[in-house]
Amino acid sequence: MDIGYMIEIFPKLISTLPISLLIILTSSILGLMLSIVITALRIKRIKFLSPILEAYISFMRSIPILLLLFLVYYGLPVFFSLLNLNMNDLSAIVSAMITLIIFNGAYLSEILRPAYLAVEKGQHEAADSLGYTSFTKIRKFIIPQMAPVALPGLGNAVIYLIHDTSLVFTIGIVDIMGKANLIMANSYGENKVEVFLTIAIIYWMVCLLSDRFIKLCENHTYLRKIENKRAFNSQSLKLHQKFTKRNIKSNLD
């Protein structure tokens, strides 16, 4: 093990992190937006659309992400040329993003839908009966109540997404994994373990950050607020008891 070498290649690898982050952020945000639309359409149970959506979700969940990546990268230009559109310039990064967005659109809706269904019907009825518009109802009551149910699943999904970006080097994107391959090729296959270990550490750091972010979101859910309140009450009770005991003692002294 050559730790000096690991420290030497670390800046080279980290310099490609912005590309990975760009792919991760874009596909998680747009993927989430797509999944919200898909979830809403699935919940509305539109006659002709529902079977199509179910087929789309089943397809996306069934095929390996690597295969999907190839299908989009090689398939989309062919598909567009059939429509007489020239899309040969579709860059690898855009292909990677499209792949991850359509994959996560399906995958995340499998997390959002049960979270939506977990909100009791009575909550809808109460808001309806008070005269809230459906948009305000969803914003004020339904999404806040979905959040504690959905966030752990969404957190996992982000971690899977981070892992999935390690495949985009296969279509020629120089992300962390791509850079690692270049470094290994330049050093004639020497020090492979050091390179892999270094990028493992980088992925770990990125996942820790995303975990932090999800925890931060979870701390803002109403369930956590109630928990915190209880914890605070019992803590202040303990403090109170502690100090009153002390007072009694000092009085005795």
């Binding site: 009791e120 009575g122 009825e125 109460a126 309806d128 009966s129 008070l130 009551f141 806040p144 109403y222």
Partner: peptide, 21 residues
């Protein structure tokens, strides 16, 4: 429907208070 609902209010068997409020 919205107009009708805004003239009335309902008290439910299951209370249905907003849990996040």
């Amino acid at each position: 429907i919205l107009k009708l609902r805004r003239k009335t209010a309902m008290v439910f068997q299951q209370f249905n208070l907003f849990k996040n409020k």
